[in-house]
């Protein structure tokens, strides 16, 4: 059964069919949300919020575009809003300021020559998530859809409503920014 058929069924009152749509897209949406928030619990909450919002707005869905494109856009907007709210939350800012005062991340890399020898620690994960978070919204979205979702530049361009050339440029800048920031952080340690 295609996405469009399921949506038509739901709009005709058979709401239990929505479960099939959830099960079809839940992994993709969760992965995309993870790319933004880097926290399993928050990503689960955002996935749930995305599907609830999609259900509420289903009557507005235009059948001229793919359902996956539409659901990705909603998930992206909710994730970016979540990050903005988190950034603006006074208590979180105080907490992270206290964390940075008390913790001294020990990044130790024993051997650069073999990727398998590089031990990934919690500090690394935290560092990467902070650096990804510091990218602009557009760079972040292009990066997440490319690296986490492994979508093609054409698919990313459709979701972001920009040209493929613009996606390529966003990805290049995102990668360059990440490399620069992470290698700078590694130098400091």
């Amino acid at each position: 059964m295609s996405d469009f058929d399921i949506i038509k069924e739901i709009l005709n009152g058979n709401k239990d069919q929505y479960r099939f749509l959830i099960e079809r897209y839940q992994d993709q949406i969760f992965r995309a949300c993870m790319g933004y928030v880097h926290c399993e619990e928050d990503a689960n909450d955002l996935t749930q919020e995305t599907f609830i919002k999609v259900y509420q707005k289903l009557s507005n869905f235009k059948f001229n575009a793919a359902f996956s494109t539409w659901i990705y856009r909603i998930a992206i907007n909710l994730s970016l809003n979540f990050l903005r709210k988190k950034k603006g939350n006074l208590f979180d800012r105080i907490e992270s300021a206290l964390d940075s005062l008390t913790s001294k991340p020990q990044i130790q890399i024993s051997d650069y020559s073999n990727p398998e020898d590089i031990l990934i620690t919690n500090e690394h994960t935290e560092m990467i998530s902070k650096v990804i978070e510091s990218l602009s919204d557009k760079q972040k979205t292009a990066f997440v859809l490319s690296k986490y979702e492994e979508l093609s530049q054409k698919e990313i361009a459709t979701i972001m409503e920009i040209t493929e050339g613009a996606v390529e440029s966003l990805l290049q800048r995102a990668k360059a920014n990440l490399q620069k920031k992470i290698s700078h952080l590694l130098k400091k340690n």
């Binding site: 969760f30 992965r31 993870m34 790319g35 689960n44 590089i118 560092m127 990467i128 998530s129 992470i182």
Partner: peptide, 21 residues
């Protein structure tokens, strides 16, 4: 440093992608 940064980024992303909903 750049190489390490790229390896760490890829590894962190792979770890996060392994998580299940």
């Amino acid at each position: 440093k750049v190489y390490t940064a790229m390896v760490i980024t890829n590894r962190v992303i792979s770890q996060e992608k392994e998580l299940k909903v």
